[in-house]
Design a protein around this nucleic acid. Structure first.
Lengths: 247, 247
DNA sequence: CGCCTAGTTGATGGTCTTCAATCCTGGTGG
DNA sequence: CCACCAGGATTGAAGACCATCAACTAGGCG
């Protein structure tokens, strides 16, 4: 296991407005007024791309910035007191990384690039300074956090009671939704994480994930070739995810 | 099953400063400047007490206010599309209720009083109006949410991989910590929720919870009489919670 | 071409759910 | 005040499900 190294070099801040535009198309589900967006844009800095296995931040590092993924994807891995490594979240393009670090002023895990990944950095101090003058922005952050909170909470309690096949179906439905929400195809996508990562995230053994993928293919729900997934019957998958795995 | 009814009558707003003081002792782990506190106090309204099984809000109701528990306790129960009822959280004195509703503008479950419960209401609009003039307050809310997020995330992924005894141990350690943090005894407390509620929260069958409680008592970790719990060996309990239930 | 990691497949055992029966407890009414 | 009742809590037995161990295959990078 290679020790992750933080990569925090910054690109030059030319072409800022262009970046802002991209940011808006990726990150913002709500309509913010253009002046708010501009402010957001001023705050955002483009970071140098991460290569696969690079760490954006490591566990325990002081919290300074949120990040928005421009392209690529990350996983967050938390090491428990017990020296177990748990994958606690995945981040896809347009999603905000680091919201769970605000409370402790420290990042709660290692953020590892699953592939070549580019990001915008949002220094939190500057964000805070802006919230007064841009209540919309402030609201936006609240809503992001609250939604994530609600999501996690529901997901957790769903997963805890569910059989492995329902868990994996839930995972695919959620991924599909996340891709759709960001304007990508909800039926065909690459997941850069390994089977082990998925297993860790869902609380399943690698072998179980593998077996389930096989079964899902037999049932015509999906096809998987390596890390590329096609969803053939999203409705059936959703039904499975919504079914109460245990009677 | 009785249908819960929202109880939202307000007490008169006399004695506000006194309530503010209580609020500060209950809710705020950080030191806020006294003028911020006063503002917080002005925002807080005391609600009429809820009786056992009363609902503070019901699932889907438009979000208007956060609440701080003054005395008593609540559970939040979410009904899934599948008509399953899941206990998604418990709230103890001093804790903030409703943070997961900000994102959707709707409460994500029924908040049910587990016993006679009194609350302070914090109308969100008024809170928002204050955050500009009181950045500390604003910060405080961010931190509350972020912490909850991190907690949930970690808890979820711990629980997913853990055996039932480790889950229950984790639950007790967490409860003990929450009581301690609010100035109550971490070794002896009442949990007003039923075994069924605990099971639902942890993703375990009632019977499993019951059996585990029996085992924990045999092992001298705790004693339970009805809903009163004594923790005899918090250290061992913590060790158990931190142990990797599955090898 | 060969190593190393990721992924697949098979067999076995432990853990927890489920179903069922019984016990306890608190609240109610006679 | 006591008997009764209903819901909560406990205990037991059986079976499903998944983790684990192990062997093996596939694929990527030097």
């Amino acid at each position: 296991m290679t020790t992750p190294r933080p990569v925090l070099r910054f690109a030059r801040q030319h072409d800022l407005h262009n970046q802002t535009c991209r940011l808006s198309s990726l990150c913002l589900p709500f309509s913010l007024s253009s002046e708010t967006l501009d402010r957001f844009g001023v705050v955002a800095r483009r970071t140098a791309p991460l290569r696969k296995r690079d760490a954006l931040y490591v566990q325990g590092m002081p919290f300074n910035s949120l990040y928005v993924i421009h392209s690529g994807s990350l996983k967050q891995v938390t090491t428990t007191e017990n020296q177990e490594e748990l994958v606690t979240s995945f981040f896809l393009p347009g999603e905000i990384v680091g919201l769970d670090a605000i409370g402790d002023h420290r990042y709660p895990g290692n953020a590892i690039a699953l592939e070549t990944t580019t990001l915008f950095e949002l220094p939190f101090e500057r964000l805070e300074a802006l919230t007064c003058s841009s209540p919309e922005l402030h609201n936006y952050l609240y809503q992001c956090m609250s939604k994530e909170l609600q999501n996690e909470r529901l997901l957790m309690h769903l997963l805890l009671r569910k059989t492995s096949d329902v868990r994996l179906a839930t995972f695919f439905v959620a991924m599909s939704l996340r891709f759709r929400r960001r304007g990508y195809s909800p039926y065909c996508f690459n997941l850069a994480m390994s089977r082990g990562d998925i297993g860790s995230y869902l609380g399943l053994a690698v072998e179980t994930v593998s077996r389930l993928l096989g079964r899902f293919q037999q049932q015509g729900l999906i096809t998987s070739r390596g890390r590329e997934f096609h969803i053939h019957d999203l409705e059936a998958l959703t039904r499975l995810a919504d079914s109460n795995g245990r009677c």
